[in-house]
Design a protein around this nucleic acid. Structure first.
Lengths: 186, 186, 186, 186
DNA sequence: CATGAATGAGTGTTCATTCAT
DNA sequence: GATGAATGAACACTCATTCAT
């Protein structure tokens, strides 16, 4: 791991633990065992560090969605499957997701990421919903709004799970909640 | 409006617009057309200003829930009604809700408020779900988890609506989404 | 006791307890059960309050010295007697003396008081020493320097007793110390 | 002289001249020709600057006393000698001593220093007095109280000399004053 | 006379950023 | 590349003083 990566990984830890504002450059340098000046060799500013974290997350998450999307036509990827995989992704990327969720109300960059990520997810869900309705396995509900609904629900639950660690894992129940709302009854 | 109220109302605007950290005492004083020192005649600290805002919100929201709860046995208050009224409440208290949602990951006070508010809501939903299942109008789903689900969903959507003002009002669709998931089909 | 006196007496307590700088006008007003503004009806400034305290002390102490001085020719007032009485005076005016001793290094007013008080004492001691030497009961030591010595010694001990409350009363021993240094041996 | 030393030396000047409270960080930075922030690279707080000054003084003074003490058994170090050397020490460390004397009534750290210094001195005087009485050259006076007396006298005079610069050097006379009180007459 | 809200200059301290080495 | 001392603007907060009531 080179210096830039060391900084990024320590910044992820710190920001997800104590937030962007309480993460000072001094604290970050100490944690990463480097000098404060070194941060500025690799990043333009403190915000730029955050930007890189968010960009990494974007790449990862968009890749993750696109992978599912590519599989889906052949693989009969169901809505439930997608939801499950999303919750898995969140579990494996807790720090990054926490950073995104805690900064998008404050930072434009983060907001843009959140928008692009949820747009892509929504489009995917729209596809799945439309295909499902065509096949008669998904109920007749307005597609774009319902897609929004699912995205909002997913991120709402992810946020709850990340910030209330004492909460038991509700992702299975969440999938069930959505299935009941969307699937045509047998 | 007395000075304390002027400070509170300006602080609400500022914090909901730019967040707690970017809301400096200097900025607040300038916006409220008072001197910085005056803030400290009425509040113990900058955080104390936030505390008062949150306490006001707690009183308002808890009162709102309790009012619904009191009505519900006589009035056949349905889950849908509650959801609708919540979204209305959010619409009329945008600033305060935004402040709560943007500070609970950072400030203990705010986190406590969020916990107390969602606990109360959950308990209410548990009541409604249990009663609904007894009457046979609500499906057979695990009550506590489902109550959590609804709360998470509600706040997830409220957050989305508050931070993406370009979003059209989805509250009607949200109520429908939940209804489909929970109501026994006719 | 009128308002002015109430302020002065509370100020004495506070300043002697926590010092002039830590005694804020807000604290003083609270202690005296008056409003901050009221202080400025009776005194020009915070320093002016101190000034009045010091002036009162000056009047008291100068009166005390002059009384002894007037008695002394007739009464055969000895050096020991004067020392004893000084220590008694200090014991009865702890607050004021503490204020004088803790402020003269910082405030001109206080410094002036300290100078005028010690000048008067020194002159008195010079008188006593000269008379004592004439009578052959006081050793042959340079009068002005020795008078200084005694004054310094007295205030040094007073200060020690005021600031180290755990110290046992050493005033008797101090009188003895001086007596041995000054009195002609029998 | 490195920056830390520059800060310390300027702080010594300022604090001894105008006192701890009037010595603001802004003033100190200006005097030392550095920015205010730089002070906090080298010291934790304004009080920490004072602490370092006092610790330096403690080291110096304790070293000074211990050196005399080590010499004394071989060298027949007399009480007079110790007094003389103390006054010399004060003359060469005016600023530091002034700071100690002007802060011990206000700051715990300073008070502790004053206590430790005078304890050490007292113990030393007790040793010298006891030894002197055994040899029959020191009068029969209560040892601990008399040791206190001398310390109080020394610091009382030092203080007077430091704060009344117009005072001629009385240290010789002070030694004589004590000698007369303590030495057995030939 | 008394109040207490308001002031605003000032306080100690923090922190992202720069730059000579 | 890396350092870490230095910066200076900004920060939350304090406090002696004023003044309309």
């Amino acid at each position: 791991m080179n210096t830039k990566e060391i900084i990024l990984s320590n910044a992820k830890e710190l920001i997800s633990e104590i937030g962007f504002y309480k993460t000072t450059t001094a604290l970050l340098a100490k944690r990463a065992n480097i000098s404060e000046g070194t941060i500025y060799r690799h990043f333009e500013s403190k915000e730029d560090v955050l930007l890189h974290i968010l960009e990494d997350l974007e790449t990862k998450y968009v890749g993750f969605i696109d992978a599912m999307r590519l599989e889906s036509p052949y693989n009969e990827c169901s809505l439930e499957k997608v939801l499950e995989k999303h919750f898995e992704f969140v579990k494996h990327n807790e720090e990054d997701i926490k950073i995104m969720l805690s900064t998008y109300s404050i930072l434009k960059t983060s907001r843009r990421l959140m928008e692009s990520v949820s747009l892509r997810l929504r489009e995917f869900f729209e596809e799945l919903l439309t295909r499902g309705q065509a096949k008669g396995v998904i109920r007749d509900a307005p597609v774009p709004e319902t897609a929004w609904m699912i995205v909002v629900f997913m991120f709402g639950l992810s946020r709850a799970q990340l910030y209330w660690s004492e909460l038991s894992d509700l992702s299975g129940e969440a999938v069930e909640f959505c299935r009941r709302s969307l699937a045509v009854e047998a």
